[in-house]
Write a protein that binds this DNA or RNA. Structure first.
Lengths: 273, 273
DNA sequence: ACCTGAACACCGTTCAAGT
DNA sequence: ACCTGAACACCGTTCAAGT
């Protein structure tokens, strides 16, 4: 909780806080109480009716969903949980967000994150441009790990996703290549980034056995691996030692190395620069 | 249904069929009927009790789960559905598979798929080896699209996953580089493949609006994109035309191109060959 | 001891009823 | 017309009861 808050866009955070701070219309599900229990008290005893909050906007719901997914993972996103966070009934999430399924909420979340990818200026040099875009994507993926899970199923072609694609095309526009090859270049870079982020995910495995913690599970896995290596059937694995798990710094170094290799290969083979 | 059957390993298919062909112990949930309704008929009228099938083995359950996921997607995998397919009660899936959560079933499925990655011989040339491994991973990912969804969360370090890693390490063992760089090379190639497969997934989007088909949804998306392009705000996107969606052949060409770029970059920058 | 029926605490979504 | 309460048809998993 709060782990990613530092890096979440200010706007999202502000929206979310305003929601939390706003007077919830129905803090817990009071069984549709009558307007005012006039018989049981004097008016002065009763607090004034809560300021009827302005109706939820779609962006409020999307921001809250992103904050929830950042903090507790995609699995925590439930229409009912989201509704509770927003002090609203479940079905209101559908009507206020204007979605007709949970999947469409995910679409909105993905496109919102795509806004983080947009550059103020696209560098003139294609390598600088692609590198900058790649780094941006990586940062957003690490900031919103749930995006990795959605990226295969939730297309990136909402308004912000389209703007991002336009910028990526702009980055390679100057190259003297046919469109198909340009497109391959873009895809090669973007898929590389997505793959790196995907692999980075499995560091934070969820527990397999309900009672035990993720930490215990990782210990068991390490133990299992050590036994395998000790069997002697895995000489190359043994040569690498148990230092295979990597720190965040290692992962960034590996990412940069691979990106350089890829860009170098493109420059040398496709572009000829 | 049957869409991937051609490419599913023979063993899986055979296992699954034998299960289907085997006499289901309880075809539909008879409300725990008494052993033999002796009063209503003569023995000769009653069929002999179904041959008590040998207890399910873990591999039967895993094979059935893989076949189900191949045919209907990861979302179709439900303990209850799987139990029904195997003519068994839900809780029996847990006991016979020896799992303590659905997540562990996924772990077993992933490791089973890892067996498809193993090479009979690792080519001596590092580039040949990595290319062959990359192609193998890609083929398995396309054959089992659900694997893409699991790859971030379900570690690849079961018995078969470990064998696969050993082979990948063997492929680069001959290089005169420090272990960390070798590991970066492996990760760069594997993550590239995973990323390519991830992007290939979003061709087959699931429907967003319950009533409508996925086809209708894609049409709407195309229409939306066309409108965006028509607005004139996306000159580079417009220059590419609507031919952005790609055939399977295009995707394979893009994959191969990018893999060549990456391997070339590695050879030129890291290896110096 | 192994296995499992019934129950529990959830889901997303439908739909009829409210305003 | 917009909004939503209650209901429906599911989940994964617990746990006590069966064998």
């Amino acid at each position: 909780m709060g782990r990613y808050y530092v890096t979440v866009p200010i706007r999202c955070l502000a929206d979310d806080l305003s929601i939390v701070a706003g007077m919830p219309r129905r803090p817990e599900s009071a069984p549709s109480a009558p307007r005012a229990p006039a018989e049981t008290s004097v008016v002065w005893d009763r607090p004034p009716p809560a300021q009827r909050r302005a109706p939820l906007r779609r962006e409020d719901i999307v921001s809250a969903a992103i904050a929830l997914a950042d903090a507790e993972g995609l699995g925590a996103i439930t229409i009912r949980r989201l509704a509770a966070d927003l002090s609203v009934r479940p079905m209101s999430v559908y009507s206020y967000a204007g979605i007709s399924s949970k999947e469409e909420l995910f679409d909105l979340m993905v496109d919102e994150v795509c806004a983080e990818l947009l550059l103020a200026d696209v560098p003139p040099d294609w390598r600088d441009g692609l590198r900058m875009i790649a780094v941006r994507i990586r940062e957003s993926l690490l900031r919103h790990p749930w995006w990795v899970e959605l990226i295969g199923h939730n297309v990136l072609l909402g308004p912000n996703g389209t703007r991002h694609r336009e910028q990526t095309l702009a980055a390679v526009a100057g190259l003297d290549l046919d469109p198909a090859t340009k497109f391959s270049i873009i895809l090669a870079v973007e898929t590389y980034v997505v793959g790196q982020a995907t692999y980075a995910m499995d560091e934070q495995g969820s527990p397999r056995i309900p009672g035990r913690s993720a930490e215990q599970w990782h210990d068991s896995l390490r133990h299992y691996q050590a036994n395998l290596v000790a069997s002697g059937e895995f000489p190359h694995l043994a040569a690498f030692g148990p230092a295979v798990q990597s720190s965040a710094g290692d992962r960034e170094r590996t990412f940069t190395l691979g990106l350089d290799w890829l860009l170098h290969g493109i420059a040398d083979t496709a572009v000829g620069t």
